[in-house]
Write a protein that binds this DNA or RNA. Structure first.
Length: 801
RNA sequence: GCGGGUGUGGCGGAAUUGGCAGACGCGCCAGACUUAGGAUCUGGUGUCUCCGACGUGCAGGUUCAAGUCCUGUCACCCGCACCA
């Protein structure tokens, strides 16, 4: 047998599949549909990463199996091509982002094709294509029309290096997500999408879908729903109502002070009445200097100032209580004011200790002289609540009293904030809005979409964070679509998340110029049956795209309320040193090198074999060579091939067991054990010294999703025809068992012997065989048998005394 | 601090969910073929005081039987983080 020429063979079959549209999805086919989605890549200049290969290989295997099982499979790919790295390259090199993007897309496409992924290449989408972003803008305008878009002047996270406003999501930990510089706070008028309006729907929708439990949990935590109560505290001096939010209204009798955020408007409103306004202003200035990061990092050290001149009244007890300003209360959550119950809240406790405020216990169970007690217990010092031991009952009762007195009511809050939806950058979708001095914000008419990005020479952002578009008069100056008067175009662009919020819809009908996708195509393909991607996208991208999809559902544009029926996530590939791969660490692996030196099939098998698909695992070159050896041995089967139309009895159960194992493991994404099972079978075949045609045919088919090139070649050579057009092989549960099996015999839980028994033997027979064994007989000789256990097909345990 | 996850040979990892711990692969050892081996093939390979015992981060417990269940504890990783 001549050596396997992986380079020539892989090229040959890639060309064949492409030429024959082997993996083309057919909208409207009578076959059952299966829509498998992987996260489309950002086409960076660095090219593909082995992480991409692993991310796509999972559903690649599932898709190839599904096709062999007779499904009409949609397995598309595209490019999420707007974004800062490309623009930064353009700024540095002067090459237009369009050109940079096109080059990178070509590079990525070639790399993906070399790995032999069975994508439907006729459906590629590119978010920066006018024909695509026309519909991104269209959806934005629909949201605008439906009141989900608004502008607001607020403190924003601003990256001084990228000169761009960032969402909370993009500035986690006080560092810019892109360049990792420190974020500063800046007041700016920005665009928002009212995602909070969908908070409940996004939460409830999780019941309709099948996401991995940790994925679901992350989304729930991100949305962060809490239920509690709003309560109005009257201010003694002026009758003003200071409204607070609390999740623990049951502790209302333990309130000894109140705290408001430094930015709370009541300070400005009554600044004349506040005796120590200078001290408050100074404190406020100090807080403004701190970044949000510093503010949240200095958790232990509580600071604040008492307001002299405002006194609150507890609505239940009528007691007067002091009001403080402190930056541990945020304006952005709840009402920006809290009732403080130091006995039962750790933050309030720290503050009260520092400022010498009373601490009143209202729930028994802890030691409030040492620390706050946040657990359950019997209510005390709480008037009508005294004696209640159940938190729920206490809350119910308090809510009743608050309602009766008209000073409070039940309420919910979400951690999720509205989505800051703009960037002062060039390389993004222009926001299709015109600012008219007479008409205000006017949407660009639908028939004028796409609002195209104008050509630019200088991509440098403006000095105060203005978009480069602001410098282009021909773009900025326009007529108001409503009144025809002189107007100015919005110059901000959409954030990178925009294009990826609906790409899965476009795949259904990617070349449609009249709709973002036809109703028929959407009805046929949606929802996505299985979506796999990285954990890092589980909160942002997944929440955003579910939001857009739910909105489109509400206005009747899509047929399903949820976009993704199932979501899984793969683990990272770490560098050979066990650290996260990064250019700076120099521990990256280039998939191109692997394909060059070992072939695409080896790369594919290895990324799936290296460990649990959902777990991170380090790259190991030697281990990968083991996969190369495996495929070489598969090739070598041709040397020991004999005729035969049926599995031989020697391999009967192994064949059925392996087919079953591979079939089931693929569905459970346990690709590593599926490969291991095929390796075991191969070892068995070589030990036997031969394989017949029926056995080889089945083995090639189950290996095909993992290593499509070599299996296609061998199939074609030996059987003629195209493997990708065959049927997935079946197994018979009844034939998965051997007639004679080995079981272990324990005496008092210690293994004493292994015996061969008929698979169907009952306990009495098995025990007879077991006791006839010398080692077992010796171990039980002269002892009393207390108990005898036989676990069918597993083991025997004889308990003696 | 809160939430989630993980701890198993020299390494990556298996273990039908309470039933033979270490499948499969790497590495290593020995042998074969070779002028040669960083190719290929065959065999071996958890540890030790090796006809026996000990072994799944650590300490207990339940059970005929525990990597798996329970209690406590330690370490590491990943999210979120003064969310009222």
């Amino acid at each position: 047998m001549e050596r396997y020429d992986y380079a020539a063979t892989e090229k040959k079959w890639q060309e064949y599949w492409e030429k024959h549209d082997t993996f083309k999805a057919e909208t409207g086919s009578k076959k059952p549909k299966f829509y498998a989605l992987v996260e489309f890549p950002y086409p960076s200049g660095a090219g593909m990463h082995v992480g991409h290969i692993k991310a796509y290989s999972g559903l690649e295997v599932v898709s190839r199996k599904r096709r062999l099982q007779g499904y009409n499979v949609l397995f598309p790919i595209g490019f999420d091509a707007y974004g800062l790295p490309t623009e930064n390259t353009a700024v540095k090199t002067g090459v237009h982002p369009r050109v940079v993007t096109d080059n990178n897309i070509v590079k990525f496409t070639n790399q993906l094709k070399r790995v032999g992924f069975s994508f439907d290449w006729s459906r590629v989408v590119d978010t920066t294509d006018e024909k695509y972003y026309k519909w991104t803008q269209w959806i934005f305008l629909k949201m605008f029309e439906n009141g989900l878009v608004f502008r607001d002047k607020t403190l924003v996270n601003y990256c001084p290096s990228c000169k761009v406003v960032l969402s909370n999501e993009d500035s986690q930990g006080g560092k810019c997500d892109i360049c990792h510089s420190d974020i500063v706070q800046k007041t700016k008028e920005v665009w928002y999408l009212r995602i909070t309006e969908y908070a409940d729907k996004l939460l409830q929708g999780l019941d309709e879908v099948n996401y991995l439990p940790n994925i679901r949990l992350q989304q729930e935590n991100w949305i962060g729903k809490s239920t509690g109560a709003f309560v109005n505290f009257e201010i003694k001096e002026n009758g003003e109502k200071l409204r607070i939010y609390t999740t623990r209204p049951d502790t209302l009798y333990g309130v000894t002070f109140m705290v408001i955020a430094p930015e709370h408007p009541i300070i400005e409103k009554y600044r004349d009445k506040i005796a120590n306004i200078d001290a408050l202003d100074a404190y406020k200035a100090e807080c403004a200097k701190k970044s949000e990061f510093e503010r949240t990092q200095l958790v232990k050290d509580k600071t604040g100032v008492k307001i002299e001149g405002l006194t609150a009244i507890n609505p239940l007890t009528g007691k007067e209580i002091p009001v403080y300003v402190a930056d541990y209360v945020m304006m952005g959550y709840g009402t920006g004011a809290i009732m403080a119950v130091p006995a039962h809240d750790t933050r309030d406790y720290d503050f009260a200790k520092k400022f010498g405020i009373d601490i009143i216990e209202v729930i028994k169970g802890g030691d409030i002289s040492k620390e706050a007690y946040t657990g359950d217990g019997e209510m005390v010092n709480s008037d009508v609540l005294n004696g209640i031991t159940n938190k729920k009952d206490a809350i119910e009762k308090v809510l009743g009293i608050l309602a009766e007195k008209g000073v409070g009511e039940k309420g919910v809050q979400y951690k999720m904030k509205d989505w800051a939806f703009n960037r002062q950058r060039y390389w993004g979708e222009p926001i299709p809005i015109v600012h008219c001095p007479h008409c205000g914000m006017v949407p660009v008419p639908y028939d004028q979409l796409p609002l195209k990005l104008p050509p630019v020479d200088n991509f440098q952002p403006g000095s105060d964070g203005e978009s480069p578009l602001a410098k282009i008069d021909s773009f900025v100056n326009c007529k108001c679509p409503k009144c025809g008067g002189d107007a100015r175009r919005e110059t901000d662009t959409m954030p990178q998340w925009a294009g990826s919020s609906w790409y899965f819809l476009r795949y259904c009908d990617p070349n449609n110029d009249n709709e973002f996708a036809s109703k028929e195509a959407l009805k046929y393909w949606m929802p996505v049956d299985w979506y796999n991607g990285g954990m890092e996208h589980v909160t942002r991208h997944m929440i955003y795209s579910r939001f857009w999809h739910k909105f489109l559902y509400d206005i009747g544009e899509v047929p399903t309320s949820e976009p993704y029926a199932k979501r899984t996530a793969q683990g990272l590939i770490l560098g050979p040193d066990g650290e996260k791969m990064s250019k700076s660490r120099g521990n990256t692996i280039d998939p191109n090198d692997v394909v060059d030196n070992y072939g695409a099939d080896v790369l594919r098998v290895y990324v799936l074999f290296m460990g649990d698909y959902e777990q991170a695992a380090p790259w190991n070159d030697s281990s990968m060579k083991g996969c190369k050896r495996f495929l070489d041995r598969i090739w070598g089967l041709q040397d020991i091939l004999v005729d035969g139309d049926e599995y031989r009895s020697e391999l009967m159960s192994s064949m059925h067991k392996t087919i079953k194992k591979v079939s089931e493991d693929i569905e459970a994404m346990k690709f590593n054990t599926a490969v291991a099972a095929m390796m075991s079978l191969l070892n068995e075949i070589y030990a036997l010294g031969s394989i017949n045609k029926a056995e080889l045919r089945s083995l090639l088919i189950i290996l095909n999703p993992f290593a499509p090139h070599i299996t296609e070649e061998m199939y074609n050579k030996i059987f003629g025809g195209i493997l990708s057009e065959q049927e997935w092989v079946k197994y018979d549960d009844a034939l998965c068992v051997d007639s004679t099996i080995e079981v272990a015999v324990q005496v008092n839980g210690k293994i004493k012997a292994k015996i061969m028994i008929p698979a169907e033997a009952e306990q009495a027979e098995v025990l007879g065989i077991a006791k006839a064994d010398d080692a077992v007989a010796a171990a039980i000789d002269g002892k009393n048998i207390v108990k005898e256990i036989y676990v069918k097909g597993r083991l025997v345990n004889i308990v003696v005394k």
